[in-house]
Amino acid sequence: MLKIEKVSKHFGGVWALRDCSLETRDWPAVGLIGPNGSGKTTLFHVITGFYTPDAGHVLFDGEAIQSLPTHKIVKKGIGRTFQISRIFETLSLMDNLLIARKHVTGEAVLPLFTSWKKVKEEEDRAREKALSLLALMGLEAKKDEPAGNLSYGQRKLVELARTLMLDPALILLDEPAAGINPTLIQKILTVIHALKKEGKRFLIIEHNMDVIIRLCDWVFVLDAGSVIAEGPPDIIRNDPKVLEAYFGK
């Protein structure tokens, strides 16, 4: 589904990614682990088009996407969350979700005046969908509150719900379990498991090995911008190369 071919990216002489290659094949959920600064988040930025790689290809369903702008990549079916959630703070939860739609008639000036009815219909349909996603996250009671009022963990849920509004085929999660309490972690795990059953695919950056083991079917290990190991999660956690990357020799 997603294939990274020898991707490199450097910033002022420092290689954030160097000949990084990986393929998610048919695994429903793939983990991405590695020490801080190993290039995991940079890889996410490259996949979603925030960074253009200096070399290499990103293939999504066989199509090269590495030079497309972000909004086009998103429309091809890749959604993502951020390490520190980025939500629209002054917008209500409902509006946060309503933003995340692919083709919105009402986002151009003329249709607002010529096809108001169609705009309205789209809004109603999207509102229903957003409501069910908020319900899934247990946040429907807060739908009209500004998102800025939410707690750290709730923001993660809203961001995930917002991503799901787009019906992405592949979802990139950047540390979904970091910094939140065990109850919320459980909540997120349940949601992801349900989505996996529906056929969604995931690429997950996570430091919490427990979460990786419970979610992922395959794990890639990044160190200094390259993949140094891969395998099933329970085996990879004891791989000497991985231990070395994390703890040194």
């Binding site: 909004h71 998103v74 629209f88 002054t90």
Partner: peptide
């Protein structure tokens, strides 16, 4: 609504396909 989203966080607006 999208204008407001861009005002709040343009980066995030791009990430949801805007």
């Amino acid at each position: 609504r999208v204008f407001h989203a861009i005002r709040d966080d343009e980066y995030s607006a791009t990430a949801v396909g805007k």
